[in-house]
Simulated assay, not measured.
Amino acid sequence: MRLFSILLLVLAPVLVCAAGEVPSTPLASKGDVILSDDFERTDLGRWKPLIGTFAVEGGALKGVQTRADHGAVGRFYHPMKDVVVEFKFQLDGSSGFNAVFDDQKFKGSHAGHICRASFTPKQLRLADDKKGIMSNELYEMRKDPARKAEADKLAAPHSSGAKINLEQKRWYQVAIEVMGDEMRVSLDGTPIAYLKSEGVAHETKSSFHFTVNGKGVLFDDVKIWQAVK
């Protein structure tokens, strides 16, 4: 089963956050600019395609899955910790995508995953990968059918989410705030999901990447700032 699908199944039981649980005010302010990319060119620039296909087309970054066992991965390398990330996206036949923070030097989780926001047409999920389902302990537990339910229960406190309704071929605006052990996501200017979990506060996220499932997702106006209180 693809990693993206595994995450959807694990996080589904703890999906919905009541609106009152999502902070109405930002977790942080925008500081120094780390990245500002409008893709008004033909090359990938600082984006590195690792799996599948990523290309710049018509002023946007497009990811397309070409491997059955894993979504397309396009990564931006830069050390960061507390950040505000904003971007536009359009589903172009895709069943969903992840926006992921990793630390390639961290060996305590699968592939160094730290935290993520996962988007499908009907659901948005936030996950602390370091302490949740991608931690080495729980990742290995889930390989044993007799311990899978136990692993899922242990992972549940490290994820949250909300119901959404995304349309194909329509642009949406996303803001992801990572500050200390907190994450907050806004969609088209409305805060809709929040997670507080210790792994989110991992000292160094060495990269940010998109993982695309299916025929394609377009990304544009990707900006990353240092987050400051």
Rank of each mutant, 00 (worst) to 15 (best):
F89D: 01
F89G: 00
Q90D: 02
Q90L: 03
D92R: 15
D92M: 12
G93E: 00
G93V: 01
G93F: 03
G93P: 04
S94I: 07
S94C: 06
S94Y: 06
S95E: 05
S95M: 06
S95G: 09
G96K: 01
G96Q: 02
F97K: 00
F97D: 00
N98Y: 11
N98S: 14
N98A: 15
N98I: 05
A99G: 07
A99R: 00
A99W: 05
A99H: 03
V100W: 03
V100Y: 04
F101S: 07
F101K: 07
F101Q: 10
F101N: 09
D102L: 12
D102Y: 13
Q104S: 12
Q104K: 14
K105G: 11
K105A: 15
K105W: 09
K105N: 14
F106G: 13
F106D: 15
K107H: 10
K107V: 10
K107S: 14
K107W: 07
K107Q: 13
K107Y: 06
G108T: 06
G108N: 09
G108F: 04
G108Y: 04
S109D: 02
S109E: 03
H110W: 12
G112T: 08
H113G: 13
H113E: 08
H113P: 03
I114F: 10
I114R: 10
I114D: 02
I114L: 10
I114C: 04
C115Y: 06
C115S: 12
C115D: 07
R116P: 05
R116S: 13
R116H: 10
A117T: 11
A117D: 05
S118Y: 03
S118Q: 15
S118K: 09
F119I: 01
F119G: 02
F119A: 01
F119L: 04
F119Y: 10
T120H: 00
T120D: 01
T120P: 06
T120E: 00
P121I: 00
P121H: 01
P121R: 00
P121E: 01
K122M: 07
K122G: 05
K122L: 07
K122H: 10
K122Y: 06
K122T: 13
K122D: 08
K122E: 09
Q123N: 11
Q123V: 03
Q123S: 12
L124Y: 02
L124P: 00
R125A: 15
R125F: 14
R125N: 11
R125T: 15
L126R: 02
L126A: 00
L126H: 02
A127Y: 04
A127C: 10
A127V: 09
A127M: 11
A127H: 08
D128N: 01
D128E: 02
D129G: 02
D129E: 13
K130A: 15
K130M: 14
K130Y: 15
K130Q: 15
K130G: 14
K131H: 11
K131W: 12
K131G: 09
K131T: 10
K131M: 13
K131C: 10
G132I: 07
G132W: 08
G132S: 08
G132E: 06
G132L: 03
M134C: 12
S135A: 05
S135D: 07
S135G: 08
S135R: 04
S135E: 05
S135Y: 04
